[in-house]
Simulated scan of single mutants.
Amino acid sequence: MPIDATLLLIGKDTVETLLQTEDLLSAVREAFVLHSEHAGRVFPVVRERLHTGGIFGIKSGDVASQNLLGFKAAGFWPNNRQLGGEPHQATVMLFDPTTGRPNAILDGNAITTARTGAAGGLGLRQLARPDSSRLCIFGTGVQARVQLTYALRMLPAVREVRYVSISNEPDEGFEAPFRDRCNIELATRCNDAVAVSDVVITATPGGGPLFDADAVQPGTHLTCVGADTVGKRELPAGVLDRAGIVVDDVEQARSIGECQWAPELPCTEIGDLLRGAVQFERKNQDITVFDMTGLALQDLTVARLLHSSALASGMGTTVAWPW
């Protein structure tokens, strides 16, 4: 048995240093296309509530043609806020599919934030009206920030941004990074902010409907991030019925996403759109929804990118991991 085997540890700072936007978008797009082509497998999701009040989950999968195998163990621990920490916690592991030996352990928080932001950006590019100029976002946390960052990148016509905070108070820390790119202000009336917006992004813990269904006007695109567990939702009843629904994975969306509340409705996987297997032409009056639950393949293609980049650049920490 090899006694000189090693394991590469890639922490948060290294992940953030190595993640370049265009490479990240390509890796996430590849994950969706692999899923659409059935070239990559997504294994059943584990998502369980814990006695501590947290939620623990595992998303795993493989791509046989690339010898890519791994999982992300992640969840949500709301009590972390009282400790001054991030409620979302995640760790990604890559394995050698031939031997089962681990190749790398990566900070999953940074990966999850980045790949979810990139997925939202790809969805906006496919589904939102290119001339969208007004955006409403629910949430001011890490995911809200990255979603807004990609929205402003993908939709350069967006100039007016209204945000809804959990405290209903202005959030200077949220506003500051975006002031040079848009006019950003707190929304004091949720329904009014939704009604005048071309794009609505919901990036909250998914505790319940965030606005009334009749606030959503024809022509609106909605990106939904927060529903990723049984019982979670951000959209009110009646919105999905009026919308063209796009998901990352049909079965997963109907199990733990917004589509769990209307599983009978037809929906299209974004990978089918990205590779041209399904044609989509948005009419100006169409309402569209991108229900994002997160694919294991996104974590794996991004982790593979990071692993290769870290090896090439000599970054990360190598530790002995003998058989």
Rank of each mutant, 00 (worst) to 15 (best):
E185D: 11
P266K: 05
L148S: 04
T229V: 09
G141K: 07
T188Y: 08
D107Q: 04
I201K: 00
L68K: 03
Q260V: 13
A310S: 14
E22R: 14
Q279D: 15
D13L: 07
A74N: 05
A144V: 09
A114D: 08
T91Y: 04
R125T: 12
T140I: 07
A118R: 02
D171E: 09
S65R: 12
E185T: 14
F95N: 06
I287W: 08
F32Q: 09
P87G: 10
V247T: 14
L7Q: 11
N168W: 02
N183H: 13
S26N: 11
L155F: 05
A64H: 07
V164D: 00
L240E: 05
A213P: 08
N168Y: 01
T204N: 08
W261T: 15
N183Q: 14
T204C: 10
G61R: 03
G11M: 01
I166C: 06
N67A: 13
M93R: 10
P2G: 00
G54M: 02
I105S: 05
C259H: 04
C136W: 00
P97Q: 01
F290E: 03
E86M: 13
M1Y: 03
L306W: 03
G123T: 04
G54W: 01
T17D: 15
I184D: 06
Q20A: 15
L295W: 03
V45S: 05
G117P: 03
F32S: 01
F32M: 12
I10V: 14
N109S: 06
V250G: 01
L9H: 09
T98A: 15
L148A: 06
T223P: 00
G53S: 07
P177L: 11
L25S: 04
C182Q: 02
G276C: 13
G244Q: 14
V146R: 11
L83F: 07
W321F: 15
V164R: 10
A27K: 05
G141C: 11
G61V: 06
M154Y: 02
I55A: 03
R162D: 01
M93H: 07
F211R: 01
D291Y: 12
L306E: 03
E172D: 06
G271H: 09
A157H: 12
R275V: 05
E234G: 09
M1G: 13
R159C: 10
R282Y: 07
Q89F: 08
L69Q: 02
V216I: 13
T202C: 14
